[in-house]
Nucleic acid binder design. Structure first.
Lengths: 130, 130, 130, 130
DNA sequence: GTGGTCTAGACCACC
DNA sequence: GTGGTCTAGACCACG
């Protein structure tokens, strides 16, 4: 299973599911044509409300990342990987930009920002926890 | 006036006020002992409800950044600057960390992350818009 | 239901709610992980405005006594009992100290203070009314 | 000067003045017939708003502790000492009772309350600060 | 004039 | 259903 929910994350649960599924497709873990686990099964494994999973999958259908296969389930679309790779970069870029814009607004000096970014980048590379 | 509300910001209005006031204190624009503009006056200038401003100020009181001077108004506490400078850094660090953690989860390569961060850092330094 | 509002109490309604909830947790009536009654339900039962209850609960969140379970409600945190027991004692101590300090300032003799405290202590033990 | 204002006290300034004046009369520091300092002079010495002092004195007149001496000022009434001694005890008793009632409501055991009261009583006797 | 409390009712996102 | 935010407007005590 490539999904996991972090209840502490400020992101909505359905959004965590959406993103992680996109990331999995972008990374090639899930390939075009493959079926994703059913809403019920996913909800059970993540221990979340089925409505939440359904909402995530609905959103992915609207974005044409998933499509229904009648009587069978939901499958990854042909051009999902391309779409997801594009999205992935934009999502991250948007978040990075937001963080840096706030750093700027707070009047931290550019050097302070640089140092902070570098130290945090190292933490992340090393997989250090909070 | 050092406050302005950005309706497009996803942050709650009261939280925008809280942060900007802290930033102003951290930057020395507002000094210990000074009175902040009254709730009503601030609400008028920002064109928001007085309750919203009151909530922001109340929060700043529980964080001991402001304290009431009875019948007079709200004043900046003696050690607010230190507190605010500390808070500012932690706030930014938390946000940067969140952005980088998501980048990591997205399975972007470290190089891609690095490049993105650097290009965004330059944008911010140059004050380029969205 | 472990909450009740005393309109005669000089304490603000939201503060009565805060304290009673803390006392209930300190006493083990409400245990970690349990959901507290919803804002709307509590407001209905106490016949006060939901905003007032929400304010009380919000305060308990900033004190880390409650935490939100998204879309579900507010739950008692793991270390709330310890926190509440500590708070309870400090709250009472502060109030007792205030009373005795005023007694002292009033230039009542120590013996008079002693006697008064003892007689009041007995009243309270016996549950006598005002 | 027998008056001093504690800005940290939760009691209103005018009430602090009222009580301390009563306490001074109860203790015989101020005697019947004596003039109290003028509103202006008192306000100057305490560094508070003259309105606040005026309110305190007005209240003391209503309670017949002070009375106006035309063209001269405010004087302590004949039976003020008796009145003030009675008031003093009731004020203190009320406050002590309030503290103990809250202690009781908090479900602290009687022994815990006893211990706390005794330790605080000693602190006060020794004039220890907060 | 100031802040503090409370009510009433609306709208939102999330589960 | 849940909590969170915001608006509107009232009332209070204090200085």
């Amino acid at each position: 299973m490539f999904l996991h929910i972090d209840p502490a994350d400020e992101l909505a649960i359905y959004d965590q599911i959406v993103r992680q599924l996109k990331f999995a497709i972008a990374a090639g873990v899930l390939r075009p044509g493959e079926l994703v686990p059913s809403v019920r099964e996913t909800a059970r494994q993540l221990a979340v409300n089925p409505n939440t999973v359904a909402r995530a999958f609905r959103e992915l259908q609207t974005e044409q990342v998933l499509h229904t296969v009648r009587g069978t389930g939901l499958a990854v679309t042909e051009d999902a990987p391309e779409r997801c790779r594009r999205d992935r970069k934009e999502l991250i870029r948007h978040r990075v930009r937001g963080a840096l814009r706030e750093a700027c607004r707070s009047r931290l000096s550019v050097d302070e920002i640089r140092n902070m970014v570098h130290s945090e980048l190292q933490r992340v590379e090393n997989g250090e926890p909070d």
